[in-house]
């Protein structure tokens, strides 16, 4: 029992804890019928506790080449989003969604505006001048959400959640919502598969 052996044991212990921490992710793959790309599908947990401390991250929803970027912005409630106009023409960002109503009016390239989103729900973002410009801000009750990549893969960080029963749900503007019961920590570390169908998207929280 020398110090060398202690060190090895210590290293094994450290590796084990980090493996354990890694398993605090929910990961899987979403297969969406009839979608060319499988990205930008929201995967989130419900029956989870609401966020109590205001989020720190700064979010940006850019306007360039007649497009809102990103197309889907997911934020925990209480977040502030800035809306810079980085295009060559004026834009008029507004929302008449019941989750958050606002209207900046037309503003010029180089200018910016900000909004704080305090209520969970879907905010459909429009530009009064360019009918193609549309994007969604999804305001979540907490930070237990993830977006899929181009292959439909997602990794959802569930660190800090109590063991128990939750629902894993999805949202996409062209797909029917899905809902799947999961149990933590059993579900963590397993590769989940979710199949989605085209159709009317639902509300985030029923």
């Amino acid at each position: 029992m020398n110090s060398k052996r202690m060190l090895i044991l210590g290293l094994i212990f450290l590796t084990m804890t980090s493996v354990h921490a890694f398993a605090l992710d929910l990961s899987g793959n979403v297969k969406a019928q009839g979608l060319r790309k499988q990205d930008n599908i929201l995967v989130y947990l419900t029956k989870t506790p609401d966020l109590t401390t205001p989020p720190q991250e700064a979010f940006v929803l850019d306007q360039n080449n007649l497009t809102f970027l990103p197309h889907i912005l997911v934020i925990p409630k209480g977040s502030t989003v800035s809306f810079p106009n980085n295009d060559k023409v004026d834009h008029n960002v507004f929302s008449l969604s019941r989750t958050k109503k606002f209207n900046f009016g037309s503003y010029k390239p180089g200018e910016s505006q900000t909004v704080t989103f305090d209520k969970p729900g879907i905010v459909e973002l429009r530009c009064d001048l360019h009918s193609e410009m549309i994007s969604y801000i999804l305001v979540m009750k907490n930070s237990f959400f993830a977006l899929t990549d181009k292959k439909g893969n997602f990794i959802l960080d569930v660190a800090g959640l109590e063991p128990g029963k939750y629902f894993l749900k999805t949202w996409h503007e062209k797909l029917k919502n899905s809902k799947m019961p999961i149990e933590l920590p059993a579900a963590a570390g397993k590769k989940l598969t979710i199949n989605l169908k085209r159709g009317a998207p639902g509300v985030l929280y029923k």
Partner: peptide, 22 residues
């Protein structure tokens, strides 16, 4: 009002992405 002064031309004769570059 932010919508004051909006005319027919602003929406029915506006830019489309497929027309870019400007």
């Amino acid at each position: 009002d932010t919508n004051k002064g909006k005319r027919c031309q602003d929406c029915h004769m506006s830019w489309r992405k497929e027309m870019l570059p400007y």
